[in-house]
Nucleic acid binder design. Sequence first.
DNA 1: TGAAATGTTGGGGCG
DNA 2: ACGCCCCAACATTTC
Length: 473
Amino acid sequence: MKTEVSLHWFRKDLRFDDNPSLNSLSKIKKPVILLYIYDDSNVHRDLGSAAKIWLGKALEYLNSKCENKLILQTGNPISIFFKLIENFNIKTISWNRCYDPWSISRDKLLKESLKDKNIKILSHNGSLLWEPWKILKNDGTPYKVFTPFYKRGCLESSPPRPPRTEKIDLFYHNFKSPSLEQIGLKNKSKWANKIIKNWQVGESYAQEVALNFLEKNTIKGYAEKRNFPYLKKTSRLSPYIHWGQISPNFLWYKAIESSNGENSRDVATFQSELGWREFSYYLLYHFPTIHEKNFQQKFDRINWKNINNNYESWKHGKTGFPIIDAGMRELWETGYMHNRVRMIVGSFLTKNLFHYWKFGEEWFWDCLFDADTANNSAGWQWVAGTGADAAPYFRIFNPISQGQKFDPEGKYIKKFVPELKNIPLKFVNNPWECPEEILIQSGVVLGKDYPMPIVDLKESRELALTEFKRLKN
DNA sequence: TGAAATGTTGGGGCG
DNA sequence: ACGCCCCAACATTTC
């Protein structure tokens, strides 16, 4: 008779600490097998290039932390589970929930297919502070505005589950897994090596980053300084949170513990950023087309410009607007972009280049380590003005003044757009206005070393306003 | 989690 | 001393 075992299916919870599914299996007291499925048949689209790199590293780390007993599979979960059930005497299958529509239907289908197998199936909340279906307005409908969602909905409902870690016993097996190379999760390209260089991917590093931020009071000044990209005062936790290498519950309670007289506003701001993440997941759960369609349908009538060369210039940081180009190059070179700059480049693509937000969302999806369906779509719809509680359509960022305001010394720009490093501060954001003589001294030939601006800011802004205004009539 | 256009105020120069 | 203009600084409105 084969040993009775439990199975934990890792999805967006690539951690051992504060993992509700693992905790529940610890109570059952049967040895546990750990599974990850690189599922390309049930998702709505393939992972982005950066995400695959991160995932590969994360799985490597996870495997090393469980004595290389992680079962790695690729393909359709239903057939994989059937195969595993033949090989092991599985009594319980457990996972932490995902909240995107295709995962929900996949899990539902799986539960049904396993119905008569005499296996207990458990699902848990491992990635949200509040379950989306528990936060509703008095009339029973979901919130559509962040502030009441967060303040009345979340903060006034029961507090999030405190973090907890139980030890599990591994089941030792010889089940064979394909290698990361074989399933396409090992990218050895120059680009891959470059963008991952400054990141350490495992759970312990996630905790290190979090504790440095929260316990060592790096968070002090966060409320103000998080807007200045060169200061690097954001938490930079987003990739870890996305992959579940650290739980929001851990961060929530660590944040509260770290709050003192000096930083309470900073801590509250950080908590509300976690709140924005909750809001994005909440929206995707209640409005499951938010990743592909305008949340506000009236914006379907906008005549966006057809995709053209400007999109390529934007993607590769060659728009001629230094703060935009710095941001897009940070993305391409590091798999990350500072939040303030995400807003600026998003506004530029949707309002000045007048491209549909989905094109921006797609490029971010491909390049960001933290590429996340809920956050990415909600963010792009926010900036485009088409979303729930979005920025009003007329809130158009001016890349020159945003650069001057949030990169006042030009340090961020000069880091990622080094061809401008000798340009005097006065012209860092508007090199095309720099006198020829100074350009020569700075070693820059516009149109050759650095592009001329690809659009007229004033003109394109007016055009966007006119087109958006048209919808009101 | 804007920015530009427009309006208001007040101080200084100057006839 | 006074009115007038200019303009910076700030406030309000508008998109």
